[in-house]
């Protein structure tokens, strides 16, 4: 499929998914409520609408959808970049333990009360994500690389960081905070408000721009690092830069919505299938598709069980784990 039609279709899907995210939920709102709320808030009009419904639409559902789009886009771009850099079809922030590392970093900052506010939590998450990337990279380098080793290193990292997170939360937090373990292990969009959207949007755009700028260098990685270097890529610099961007995006995502898995796995593969392997197109298409997927997953997480909200990571894993198995199956047959 050409890039143009794909982007158009994704944009339509994004609008539809966002509309669903605003309209569907425990408290019913009508399209009329939505248009009036948007007109009031954006155009500064004063149309009549139930204030509770206006609050739900504007403060809860719209901000939540906006963050879901940014988070989905960021995770999908991270997956695309990691798959290219590590030349591994199964690489993505969650499976490599980067999300788990970010969770541990964020939880450490919260529980030990190191500094205050969202910024220090994000910084903690970034440190955790960086440690996790280094853990995987060093383990893989020292054991000789290969698809299986990267995944094994990721499993080791995830288990370790998740154990540390659970230990910190269980030992130092009160019962209410302990509930938060689920948030850090499976993710939730429940606490999202507009400030999160204002923070995540620019970060996602900057991260996306850097990855797009490096998209041709990523193409050159197809045959490995030496081949990339012979094609004029400053391998050490590009790798460092993109690992840093990946760690930063993952850290931002995790500090807002916890560790959501498999988005970075499913989306790049699906879009690669549709728009081809060239990274300029692939990164752009993955960002859009990731946004759509995340909003749709959020809608599902709210309507599957009446009266309950599933952690969003449960929904993404329900789609992602079978996709993981399918990719594994395909790579075995390719041998």
């Amino acid at each position: 499929m050409a890039l143009g039609p794909f982007l158009l279709l994704s944009a339509v899907a994004l609008v539809l998914a966002t509309a669903g995210a605003i309209l569907l939920g425990e408290i019913a709102v009508t399209p009329r409520d939505v248009t009036r709320t948007l007109a009031n808030r954006i155009l500064g009009l004063d149309l009549e609408v139930d204030p509770i419904r206006e609050g739900i639409i504007w403060h809860y559902r719209l901000s939540r959808a906006a963050v879901a789009i940014c988070v989905g886009a960021a995770l999908a771009v991270c997956g695309t970049v990691l798959q290219a850099l590590l030349r591994n079809p199964l690489a993505e922030p969650y499976l490599l333990g980067i999300s788990a590392g970010a969770s541990t970093g964020a939880v450490t900052v919260i529980v030990l009360a190191l500094g205050a506010g969202a910024l220090s939590v994000s910084a903690g998450a970034f440190v955790g994500a960086t440690v996790a990337i280094l853990f995987v990279a060093i383990l893989v380098r020292e054991t000789g690389g290969g698809t299986e080793r990267i995944i094994l290193a990721g499993i080791a990292g995830s288990q370790l960081f998740n154990a540390v997170t659970s230990f910190i939360v269980t030992s130092s937090a009160n019962a209410e905070q302990t509930q938060g373990i689920l948030f850090w292990l499976l993710g939730s969009l429940g606490s999202i408000r507009w400030p999160d959207a204002w923070l995540s949007f620019p970060i996602m755009v900057i991260g996306l721009a850097i990855c797009l700028y490096r998209s041709r260098a990523l193409d050159a990685f197809a045959f490995g690092e030496d081949a990339a270097a012979s094609l004029g890529v400053d391998v050490a610099r590009v790798r460092l830069e993109l690992f840093a961007v990946t760690a930063f995006l993952t850290a931002t995502v995790v500090s807002m919505v916890g560790a959501v898995g498999f988005v970075g796995l499913v989306i790049p593969h699906a879009t690669r299938f549709l728009v081809g392997p060239a990274h300029g197109r692939l990164i752009l298409a993955s960002a859009l598709a990731g946004g759509v997927f995340m909003v749709a997953a959020d809608v599902l997480s709210r309507i599957v069980l009446p009266g309950q909200v599933l952690p969003i990571g449960v929904i993404t894993a329900l789609f992602g784990a079978p996709a993981f198995a399918a990719i594994l199956w395909q790579s075995r047959r390719g041998r």
């Binding site: 079809p89 045959f223 392997p277």
Partner: peptide, 10 residues
């Protein structure tokens, strides 16, 4: 290089 291979389909 002497040996080169790719995982993605080009």
């Amino acid at each position: 290089e002497q040996q080169s291979d790719i995982d993605i389909s080009l």
